[in-house]
Amino acid sequence: MSAVLDVRGVVKSFGENVVLRGVDLSVDEHQVVALIGGSGSGKSTLLRCASLLETVDDGQVLLDGEDVTDPRVDADAVRRRLGVVFQTYNLFPHMTVLDNVVLAPTRVHGRSRSDARDEALALLERIGLADKAGEYPDRLSGGQQQRVAIVRALAVHPRGLLLDEITSALDPELVGEVLRVVREGAAQGMTIVMATHEMGFAKQVADTVCFLDQGVVLESGPPEQVLGDPVEARTRQFLSRIIDAGRL
């Protein structure tokens, strides 16, 4: 089976600051991969490179076997095939919840408005927010906004979903409702790559956990192994700090 997303030796720096120093990562269909690591370890940058929101300085990103880092590839067409959810939700504040969700299906994928609307309402129904379809985002709680953002990304039927610390900006009591939506997606076979600090969630949902440190994947494997019995000293150190903070 070939990988949906295959990251090979990706390097990315911002000026003097080298964030990724040759990252390799392979994600198979229906797989859930969790990226863990301290802040500044490159988790977000890796996701932004994979979704072509940043241009890589070296290495390759392959989506379904196609090298999408080739400048001759239409980047807009590639981004269409991946869904991204951000830490800060980034819903469009001047559009209603429904318009946020149907924007890409109608404008990018050329689907009819009524068709896109029906599906958007069905998706919103599933996350329990159908009654908020006509509201503007600032009337919603953070948890509700983030669930809408997930639905907005799902509405284009992406090949994979990239989640960039999607619960980091939420109040603790709202984290559960957002993770439930991700869990459902995973259960339905969605291919997911998520940068996260929720170790408990990673343990339950992820098939593979990758520990990023100083711009490389230092250790990866099944969650029980990486989170329970890590090989690398740096991983152990990172996890013990998380345990000290009461997050695992």
Binding site: L53, V84, F86, V108, V156
Partner: peptide, 21 residues
């Protein structure tokens, strides 16, 4: 800029992003 990033991640072109978002 995160608004632009969100729009581009949905596959909107630069022009669409500017006009609609």
């Amino acid at each position: 800029p995160s608004q632009r990033a969100a729009a581009r991640s949905l596959g909107l072109t630069h022009r669409q992003t500017t006009r609609i978002v």
